[in-house]
């Protein structure tokens, strides 16, 4: 059964898609655009650090990061699969995409765990 796990990955894709659509643009607007262009000041180190330090914030951040990555993995897998017509590489694409999402999530988990 080739499609046994499709619902599983699709669930993460959907959850991650929703979360990233809601959360990422504003964070990018702050750190990626407003701060570099000098429209607003850099967030203060101590304040940012103390905001992220509580376990609950770190768990929330980890959920955002890992779900966004799984969202990317699923979508990008199908972009390659259909867009570049790599149907014959189905299994390798799945391992590559989901695998890297999981590895990067683990790295994020390591960073946040030792925060």
């Amino acid at each position: 059964m080739k499609h046994q796990f499709e619902p599983f990955w699709w669930s993460w894709f959907s959850a991650g898609g929703t979360l990233s659509a809601l959360v990422l643009p504003v964070v990018m607007m702050i750190f990626g655009i407003s701060v570099p262009f000098g429209w607003i000041d850099d967030p203060e180190y101590d304040k940012l650090k103390s905001l992220i330090a509580p376990v609950s914030s770190r768990i929330l951040i980890f959920i955002c990061i890992s779900l966004s990555l799984l969202h990317w993995a699923h979508r990008f897998r199908f972009t390659l699969y259909d867009g570049l017509q790599l149907q014959h590489l189905n299994r390798s694409l799945a391992i590559l995409c989901y695998g890297s999402a999981i590895l990067i999530s683990l790295f994020a988990g390591y960073v946040l765990w030792n925060f």
């Binding site: 991650g16 964070v27 650090k49 992220i52 990061i65 972009t79 030792n114």
Partner: peptide
């Protein structure tokens, strides 16, 4: 579909932001 690359790119950028804070 390619917006997923933007999502992944920014997510990784954020991981490094947290790493720098740490």
């Amino acid at each position: 579909e390619l917006t997923s690359l933007a999502v992944a790119f920014f997510t990784i950028e954020m991981i490094f932001l947290f790493w720098s804070l740490k």
